[in-house]
Write a protein that binds this DNA or RNA. Structure first.
Length: 485
DNA sequence: ATGTAC
């Protein structure tokens, strides 16, 4: 393993200077405890951060967040902002699961209301929201035309055309449920075919649907702004992305980028880091297809929310609005988008890659919806499989420290294959049941791959985010029931 | 992450 010349700038803030390697354009900055940092040096995470620092047009530093681990080309838990004119876009800087993200829906139910019905609720949710690799909906397929509308109008179309949700949901979704500039004519037929019956499905891997209760409130003012009033309050967390549609878009355009690097004679430190200039036709086409997948994912989480509300209505024999089932927020974890940031005292248009990272806007930011203007943006961090999840709130220092970004999860500790070797699914489910967590899963293999011990401690990740000035801890939740793919 | 693969 290479050793890196880390400089400790402040508590939990480390830098590798730009002169570490001749091709770096900016330093690498890592927000982590010493222990988290050591782990990142033991695989390719830090080296991938160094590679990202070579991207043409990259601004300030290549960032790795405390949940950082190695990914395709870029680290997961990585942020890279590039100049909006002279920069480059890399599909690897977003990842295969375009707009993988998280949504939290609140309820006015208490732990004690839900506990007696938890098995029924888990069964109904497992039935109403298809989970697993290749999962499809039988009761809800869209036409090609509708799919293209979904690509352009995202969650808004799911509500306006199919009535799957409430009008006020839109305000509580990043990009108001649809990013501008999508053009599905740049999405392949294969991607579309794969997407036709996957709206409203959960998928596999680390994706999940959980019933959680609020286990700790760190900041009551922030909690109240989100409609969280007391410990024990029940919320629902949905973690999923753009399914086969987005996956196909990524693989299609990785091939396009491979050709582009030859065409433009680009030298890469790692082939997986393939990119093309923002102004190139290749990038412009990728962005139009990518945005279609972003909107597909917003639509997917919107549709799932509808079937979640319907499941609660069935079990509690009450309307979802009487249960106060409002969305708290919906955030993207894998995305690249234009944003204005201050660099060297000047306001600049940048494209910010967030790969396994959450936007983290501080209070007063113009992009915030009215409900969160005075508090800051909710940053949703999933735990899963028995471990706590968090809601953080954007910190005033985050624009300067991380282009307004915060962690997205706990970060892997063990590879999928290592976890499979070390654990057995039945044993994991038994342990969780003993802890009071009900599990409904499509596949035992996924349970072992996603075992809680395969992930870093989310408490440490959230703590670092707060101390390093990325996001404040507001609320912590623990699961009561987990639906897995 | 994903119909585990040019």
């Amino acid at each position: 393993m290479p050793t890196f010349p880390f400089i400790e700038k402040e508590r939990y803030i480390w830098e590798i200077p730009r002169n570490y390697r001749h091709d770096m354009r900016v330093p690498v900055r890592i927000y982590a405890t010493k222990q988290q940092l050591d782990k990142m040096t033991q695989d390719r995470t830090v080296m991938q951060g160094v590679n990202v620092a070579t991207l043409p047009g990259i601004q300030k530093f290549s960032i790795i967040l405390p949940d950082g681990h190695q990914g395709y080309g870029f680290p997961i838990g990585g942020v890279a902002a590039v100049d909006g004119e002279e920069g480059v876009i890399s599909p690897g800087g977003v990842g295969y699961d375009i707009n993988c993200g998280v949504r939290v829906i609140r309820t006015n139910l208490d732990y004690n209301d839900v506990k007696p019905k938890i098995k029924e609720l888990a069964d109904v949710l497992f039935k109403n929201v298809p989970a697993g690799l290749g999962s499809r909906r039988r009761d809800f397929n869209v036409t090609r035309n509708e799919l293209d509308k979904i690509a352009i109008e995202g969650a808004r179309y799911i509500i306006s055309k199919f009535g799957l949700g409430w009008d006020e949901d839109i305000e509580r979704i990043e990009e108001y449920g649809a990013i501008e500039g999508a053009d599905p004519s740049y999405v392949s037929d294969t991607a579309k075919r794969r997407g036709l019956n996957q709206i409203g499905t959960l998928g596999s891997g680390n994706h999940f649907l959980e019933i959680q209760f609020v286990d700790k409130i760190f900041n009551m003012e922030m909690a109240k702004a989100m409609g969280i009033t007391h410990e024990g309050q029940v919320v629902i967390m949905v973690h999923c992305g753009s399914r086969g549609y987005g996956h196909q878009v990524c693989s299609d355009y990785l091939k396009v980028m491979d050709r582009a690097i030859r065409k433009y004679g680009i030298k890469l430190p790692d082939r997986e880091l393939a990119y093309a200039p923002i102004k190139s036709p290749e990038t412009q086409q990728y962005l139009k297809a990518f945005k279609s997948a972003v909107n597909f994912a917003f639509a997917n989480r919107q549709a799932i929310s509808h079937w979640v509300r319907q499941s609660f209505e069935k079990v509690f024999k009450t309307d979802a609005d009487k249960l106060d089932m409002e969305i708290i927020y919906d955030v993207a974890h894998n995305i690249v988008k234009p944003e204005e940031h201050i660099v060297n005292g000047k306001r600049k248009l940048l494209y910010v890659h967030r790969k396994g990272a959450t936007r983290s806007l501080p209070k007063g930011h113009p992009l915030l919806p009215k409900v969160y203007k005075s508090i800051g943006q909710p940053v949703l961090i999933p735990g899963s499989m028995g471990t706590p999840s968090y809601i953080l709130i954007g910190h005033p220092k985050s624009p300067d420290r991380s282009f307004a970004s915060a962690p997205h999860g706990s970060g892997r500790l063990l590879s999928r294959s290592a976890a499979k070797r070390m654990y057995r699914g039945e044993q994991i489910i038994r342990e969780l049941t003993q802890q009071g967590v009900i599990v409904r899963a499509d596949s035992m293999a996924t349970i072992t791959e996603e075992v809680q011990y395969a992930y870093k401690d989310s408490n440490e990740v959230a703590m670092v985010a707060e101390v390093a000035g990325l996001a404040y801890r507001a609320v912590r939740m623990k699961p009561i029931a987990v639906v897995k793919g």
